[in-house]
Design a protein around this nucleic acid. Structure first.
Lengths: 205, 205
DNA sequence: AAATAAATTGAACGATTATTCAATTTATTT
DNA sequence: AAATAAATTGAATAATCGTTCAATTTATTT
């Protein structure tokens, strides 16, 4: 008896507010009081649901990292053979649509916490490994399908994400839209080269 | 007349203390008071030399970024032809000796500030472009020397630093020393491939 | 020794921080 | 309607924050 729990929905609401705040003012300036004010609740309520700020930061990290996995979500109507799926994922990764995911100040702030916080470090390591593992499996599927020749799929997947992370590290500093697009295309081409593929623009020639 | 200025030396002393503190406790927990305590001076003195905390953070950013340029410092006794110099620089970049530069929590924290601070953003953009430009010149020198065949030196330099940044982004999360070394070597090999070179381990076969 | 200017201190400021605890409100059950 | 349990509030806590300003100490010049 008693009231039914609002825990899950309230927690998510708080995490989202915390994220919005961190994105706007920086994680280092995102406080519990400001977060509460943003959704018109009492600061005590935040503590009620997360006990400490540390736990809220953990939840924020998970919230952010989960979003990265969306690059593997392919609408069922777009699903084709393995190679098409792989190319769709690469399009996701190197599209302007997704850059808002990668060039995210909050993510870099959370990442910087990994150097002093083992829990967050593990979360990041897990995500990065999962991203690589998923891509590797896509590559393997292509090999089995016979539409791709890659010697070492795990290595190729690893290198591609190294390129992705390094690419957005630089691109986040590029303000000129034309330069941004040009560079993004160059980096994508490099990623495709890892799979012995050429970009569609290149293929047309 | 009056006392001679201690400005330069004192400022550097404060910046170093601020850096040490930020490295130990995180930039978000590095305060002026703690910095002052670390070198036994009054917090007011920090303000005296930097006016605001913001200016101290700017100075910290410059302090950090300047260190990255050290990868181009080649002891004169080690200087050889252009190709040897290039290889020395690449050894610098991909050596365990230098990883302490790249996997640096403070640097990622400062980097995350670029999303909301134009001044810091420019500093980072300038450094990243300088790093690329310096490498490009080294490559060009090799071309002129005839010891290297690279179609687009600027592109190659860009891709190499994309690899470097992405590499250390992942490597910073790797605790296992053997895996760290193995991955580092793989990434270096990729960088060398951009220059149509093979790693020495590869070449021996 | 007097003058000068920079270095340095120390006290105080208001603001904000994360967290506590008890009290109260609200929704759901018996 | 009474019982129950979770949701929510509000006040208070001690600590720390960046910054200010006036007073003092220290070193160098005339």
């Amino acid at each position: 008896m008693g009231r039914k729990s609002l825990k899950d929905s309230r927690q998510k609401e708080i995490i989202k507010a915390f994220y919005r705040l961190a994105k706007k003012e920086g994680l280092e300036n995102a406080s519990l009081a400001k977060t509460a004010a943003l959704i018109n609740i009492n600061p005590s309520l935040v503590i009620h649901y997360f006990q400490t700020k540390e736990h809220l930061v953990y939840a924020l990290t998970e919230y952010i990292l989960d979003k990265y996995l969306l690059i593997y979500k392919i609408p069922s109507r777009n699903k084709g053979n393995a190679q098409k799926n792989l190319l769709t994922v690469l399009d996701n990764i190197f599209s302007n649509k997704w850059n808002t995911l990668f060039d995210d100040s909050v993510s870099y702030s959370c990442y910087s916490l990994t150097f002093r916080n083992e829990t967050i470090k593990e979360k990041y390591k897990n995500l990065l490994d999962t991203l690589r593992s998923n891509l590797r499996e896509l590559i393997v599927a292509c090999k089995e399908e016979g539409t791709l020749t890659v010697k070492d799929p795990a290595l190729a997947a690893d290198i591609i994400f190294v390129l992705v992370d390094g690419a957005y590290y630089y691109l986040s500093l590029v303000t000129d839209k034309k330069e941004y697009s040009k560079k993004l295309l160059q980096y994508k081409k490099q990623a495709l080269a890892q799979l012995n593929l050429v970009s569609s623009a290149q293929a047309k020639k």
